[in-house]
Write a protein that binds this DNA or RNA. Structure first.
Lengths: 306, 306
DNA sequence: GCATTATTTTGTCCTAGACAATGTTGACAA
DNA sequence: TTGTCAACATTGTCTAGGACAAAATAATGC
């Protein structure tokens, strides 16, 4: 369509697709794709079309397909692989499908209002567990199926972020307990999980301080000391490799003082098979509420339950 | 101090310090630092201390020092370089120094309240130009001087984000004009600049839609089409290399339809020497207001000025 | 059918060379 | 002394192709 075919250098392609330079080169060597043109000093320049195909390939591999099966294929064949039976289309209640419809039609304002309304109707706890969690799942699957664009996902994230932040603003309690520090490790840039955890913890009366995403481990230690945190909460999305989750948590546990608890949550930890010494892995969000109660009963052995 | 000396592999060091693997290896070859130990398969493992020194070195290079001067030095000498005369300590009004003090003493709640109060006292426009912009500058310089930790900067970002988002929430106008799409390119993960721009644009009656950070170029095009945007605004922090800003803007300009304006702002574009064909570079935030007025007068040649 | 074991696949690391872009220095004129 | 331009040095990022462990798949035995 475009008269000018944009060319991207290898560093830009790495940034745009999330596929490392080493991987791009080794795919070219092994599978004959991508096939970038070369500039006068023999450096790779990737045409726009191939960059788009690489994004698609990354999705398919994330779906469970093997690189050897997909990296050599043409554009048409790739698209054919998106819809087949292997990707299960979960039946979802209409109430949640409506949100997906709003996302697909880019109705940012309506979407935000609808989210706010659902929050007030259901209450925060149910809103998160019965609407947002399944909605996130649905959005993730639709994206896998190629039915959602990246910018549409960004749009949804942004609206939900706005709704959650305004809810948290009304919940913040500087005198609450336990004192919790929330953040993610370097490499994890998704903040939605963090916000959902913060909202839940605030609801249960915790005193939350958030550092945003991507805090180096040593900085987390210092921050926890500065705030006299009882608990450090780390969030992991499913975008992050399982092994990175494991080693990251081990490093963090080693570096943190023993008296500070370390909790980990998000879809990235759910597929974690083994337990990690000294780290409490959270499944659904409701685990957080339970864990807070447990922490309270352990820290104040004679609770006020008359 | 720690009995266990944490060891980090090269990928983790890249993530934690922001220094690329290639650079880490070539520094070792050229300057003899860092000197990681090797595991049984001869792969580099960096001790914690060296990772911290690398972060320090990165700061000093960002300060204008040359790698050859700093990459071989010991820890003490490095620290000696942080304070000297070359780093000018700007005299700032007390009113702004107070904020820095709150950051340094980790008073998250007080900081947020103080920011909100300043916003309501000064009004959004003055708040951004007379408080936040110089404060950001001061925070940046303090960080360069090693007086601020990363987590303290994160904390400040988080509080300011909360304040700005709640301000924007009250300003949003779905029927405003022009229709503006805001985001950053892949590689730029700072969202504060984006929020400041959004707040200013909303104040001037624009209809803003934000995609958050790191949207691939093709996705920006699609999003702009979906929202029938008049203008796309990209934000660049000073953390991003000047050349990346330039090529990114050129690519975006090439890919965007000619009738959609492309504006670029943030401290990352201010040091841009040359102009870029078809891209409007913004200096201070006030440029945005002027540009909106200009856009209006060009789009509606007969304005309503009585 | 299920649990081991062998085999392939795959991402990431390695070394060492190259080069353009950028920064620094020195020569010379104003 | 100050400014300009060429010569020189520095530096990040690219190149190629080899290596290998971890993960996924196939083959085997019970």
């Amino acid at each position: 369509m475009q008269p000018t075919d944009l060319l991207f250098d290898i560093a830009t392609v790495e940034r745009e697709t999330g596929i490392g330079k080493d991987t791009l080169r080794v795919w070219e060597r092994r599978y004959g794709f991508p096939v970038p043109v070369r500039d006068e000093r023999d450096e790779r320049l990737y045409p726009q079309l191939q960059v788009e195909q690489l994004r698609l390939i990354k999705r398919l591999i994330g779906n469970g397909l093997r690189p050897a099966k997909v990296v050599g294929l043409g554009a048409e064949e790739l698209n054919g692989l998106l819809t087949p039976a292997q990707i299960q289309q979960v039946a979802a209640p209409q109430h949640i499908l409506n949100f997906v419809e709003l996302i697909k039609t880019h109705q940012a304002v309506t979407l935000r209002i609808a989210l706010s309304r659902a929050l007030l109707q259901q209450g925060l706890d149910d809103f998160l567990s019965k609407t947002i969690t399944p909605l996130n799942q649905l959005v993730g699957e639709a994206w896998m199926r190629g039915e959602l664009r990246i910018f549409e996902e960004h749009l949804y994230s942004e609206q939900l972020t706005g709704v959650l932040r305004s809810a948290i603003a009304t919940l913040r309690d500087p005198s609450g307990s336990p004192r919790v520090l929330l953040t993610t490790l370097p490499g994890e840039e998704h903040s939605l999980g963090l916000l959902m955890a913060e909202a839940t913890l605030c609801l249960y009366g915790a005193n939350c301080v958030t550092l945003g995403v991507q805090t180096p481990i040593q900085e987390i230690i210092s921050a926890a000391a500065a705030h006299r945190s009882d608990i450090v909460v780390l969030s992991f999305s499913e975008a992050i490799p399982a092994q990175q989750v494991k080693t990251g948590l081990q490093q963090a546990r080693l570096a943190l003082p023993a008296n500070i608890h370390l909790w980990a949550g998000g879809s990235g930890v759910m597929r974690q098979r083994s337990v990690i010494e000294g780290v409490q892995l959270m499944g659904p969000l409701s685990d957080l509420g339970i864990a807070v109660e447990k922490w309270r009963s352990e820290s104040f052995p004679t609770p006020l339950t008359h």
